[in-house]
């Protein structure tokens, strides 16, 4: 029996679904990004103009796009390492043989992941309130002056990062915990017999064995964090002074608020290009690390 056609036959359903629901829309969006599709074009297609790359050109000349990109990169650069560090610490604590009530803590730490972003974001908005919020009240008890979390352009993004780290802590923690449990205990036994300290065990056994997991978690977290949207949408509405407008937020405003689908598609493709480049870079670096 010829294997080639059979293989294609088995692939066909998945390929069709991907083609119809993914490839076609993506190509459509690309064509859209070369036009100035907007409200007027929605009313009458005669009002559609082919503008080639000028949507992209205009975006690159728009200060708000660069600002949004800056905010997104800030969020990723600070948020991802922080989020992974906190998750790793939580996973290590939970994995420790000394830990008690493991199922309880696992559930409690995982709970934020399964809550609705919108609902908890509203709660955090109250927590961050300058005058009446719990966060400032707690800071006040240790003598720190109230911080204008959501009103000061310098503090709004840190507030959102804190929220995102709390929200995503459990998800990464569970994956890392699974990675930790997969490390054979013989390695630790051997290390202990050689007199390795806890830190050296962590440095030379846990970290290398966990590297593939960390790489995967890192890539997932980065691509998730690049798509920052719901948090600023609910907590700050992009403010104050547009200091929490992310690239995706800008795209939402352009596309769904003002119906400039042409320029919104251009933003989407630029974001895609950036994320693709970053992920590719991470994979290359990761591969080298694993090989080394």
């Amino acid at each position: 029996m010829n294997r080639q056609p059979a293989a294609w036959l088995f692939l066909a359903p998945a390929a069709m679904v991907l083609g119809v629901f993914f490839l076609l829309p993506v190509m459509g969006a690309f064509v859209l990004s070369l036009t100035d599709y907007d409200l007027y074009a929605l009313a009458d297609l005669h009002n559609l103009r082919f503008v080639a790359l000028s949507n992209y050109w205009a975006l690159l000349h728009r200060p708000l796009f660069w600002a949004a990109l800056g905010h997104t990169v800030y969020f990723v650069a600070v948020g991802v390492p922080l989020s992974m560090l906190v998750s790793l610490c939580a996973a290590l604590l939970l994995h420790s043989p000394l830990a008690r009530c493991k199922p309880l803590f696992r559930t409690v730490l995982f709970a934020p992941v399964v809550t609705t972003v919108v609902a908890v974001a509203v709660v955090w908005r109250y927590l961050f309130n300058t005058k009446y919020g719990l966060v400032n009240y707690m800071l006040g008890t240790i003598g720190i002056h109230p911080i204008d979390w959501l009103g000061n352009p310098h503090w709004a993004m840190p507030a959102i990062i804190l929220f995102a780290v709390w929200k995503n802590l459990g998800y990464n923690m569970i994956i890392m915990l699974a990675g930790l449990q997969a490390i054979p205990s013989e390695l630790y036994e051997a290390a202990r017999m050689d007199g390795a300290s806890a830190w050296r065990q962590f440095r030379h056994i846990t970290l290398p064995m966990l590297a593939p997991t960390l790489l995967m978690v890192g890539i997932l977290t980065i691509s998730g964090y690049f798509q920052l949207f719901a948090e600023p949408y609910i907590i700050t509405e992009g403010g104050p002074l547009q200091s929490t407008v992310s690239v995706l937020y800008l795209m939402y405003d352009e596309g769904f608020k003002w119906w400039n689908l042409g320029s919104a598609s251009a933003i989407a493709f630029l974001l895609f290009a950036i994320m693709f480049a970053v992920t590719e870079l991470m994979l290359r670096v990761g591969r080298k690390e694993v090989e080394a």
Binding site: N129, K131, L150, G151, I235, E237, G239, P240
Partner: peptide
């Protein structure tokens, strides 16, 4: 005060 309606509560 230079605040938004989110902070005004």
């Amino acid at each position: 005060p230079p605040i938004t309606n989110i902070e005004a509560g």
